[in-house]
């Protein structure tokens, strides 16, 4: 076994690339869950974003426009979930699963003519000066726009939840919707906005897979990334910076395993790939044994204004 052939700078750079779709989806879902809604449809919203982004990018030859449209359409797609759960009071678990099913089916139909096509991809932005720094330059400063944007998004969400009034309202709604309602906050409206935000970032994440990471369109290409995103939100105990951390650790598991294999190490693949889920369970147990600190208290519970 010879690990000297693994270049840590390159490895970290490609871990970031492979984690970004999950990071984008997870940061949105974190906001959704903070507002007290559990949307299990992340996978469906991601794949819709992947196909929409790809179609737009191929037809306009502008990957950036692909990302914008992916965010918009996935945001609109998530409204189905919002309407059903918030206005028609349907069960969130079942509705989320339905969203995933519909998203997978719809995307496969839309994407059929595009299978096997080449897409234009995002160019790496070589940040002047910084990208020339040895090691660090290659590792951190030679990425494409979306990677920087994803980190910017995490920062914004952290700032929004911590320092803004609207962020405080959102947390209040997630903690105790009846009390928030009594204080005059529009519970349903806040949640609808959160759901749409989650849809949009999931769409971005999906588009990142089809436009940057692979870049190609195939049926079902998100391959469970949405579920990992759900796991990471819990692993992070709903905190934005921990979401970033978790995504970078777990989003890169496949890449890490392939790199180890290419370097000649025979690591049992399955143990690596099950680790994010196992660790998430452990984190869940720790959170609950401390009396559910950090978890939005109203998570997954239906809200009906009774007054």
């Amino acid at each position: 076994m010879d690990f000297s052939s693994i270049n840590p700078a390159l490895l970290i750079a490609s871990l970031m690339v492979s984690a970004t779709p999950i990071l984008l989806a997870a940061i949105g879902e974190a906001v959704v869950e903070k507002s007290g809604v559990l949307n299990l449809g992340v996978e469906g919203m991601m794949i819709v974003g992947a196909v929409v982004g790809f179609i737009v990018a191929v037809n306009t030859d502008t990957p950036l426009l692909g990302f914008v449209c992916a965010a918009i359409i996935s945001g609109i797609f998530s409204i189905i979930f919002g309407m059903l759960t918030q206005y028609l009071k349907s069960n969130q678990v079942a509705t989320g699963l339905g969203l995933t099913l519909v998203g997978l089916g719809l995307s496969a139909l839309l994407g059929r003519p595009y299978e096997g096509m080449k897409s234009p991809t995002l160019k790496a932005l070589e940040i002047p000066f910084f990208s020339d720094i040895p090691v660090l330059g290659k590792m951190l400063f030679s990425h494409d726009l979306m990677i920087y944007f994803s980190i910017f998004l995490v920062t914004s969400v952290w700032w929004f939840l911590k320092y803004t009034h609207a962020g405080m309202v959102l947390r209040a709604v997630g903690e105790n919707h009846d009390a928030a309602h009594a204080l005059g906050y529009k519970v349903v409206r806040v949640r609808m906005l959160a759901i749409m935000f989650g849809g949009a970032t999931s769409g971005l994440g999906g588009a990142y897979i089809s436009l940057a990471r692979v870049p190609q369109w195939t049926e079902g290409m998100t391959a469970g990334a949405g579920w990992i995103a759900l796991a990471i939100v819990v692993f992070a105990s709903w905190r934005p910076w921990r979401v970033l951390f978790g995504a970078y650790i777990f989003g890169g598991v496949t890449v890490l395993q392939l790199n180890l294999q290419a370097a000649g190490a025979s690591i049992p693949v399955e143990y690596l790939s099950m680790s994010p889920y196992l660790i998430t369970i452990v984190v869940l147990v720790i959170i609950s044994s401390r009396g559910n600190q950090g978890a939005p208290a109203s998570l997954g519970r239906p809200f009906h204004a009774s007054s």
């Binding site: 079942a94 509705t95 997978l104 995307s107 496969a108």
Partner: peptide, 24 residues
Amino acid sequence: PGASIQLFQGMLLFFLLATDLFAN
């Protein structure tokens, strides 16, 4: 495409959840 059936089942669930409104 096989995916249309997935879509079909998903829609069925959605419509059921939506019509459930009338029961509750």
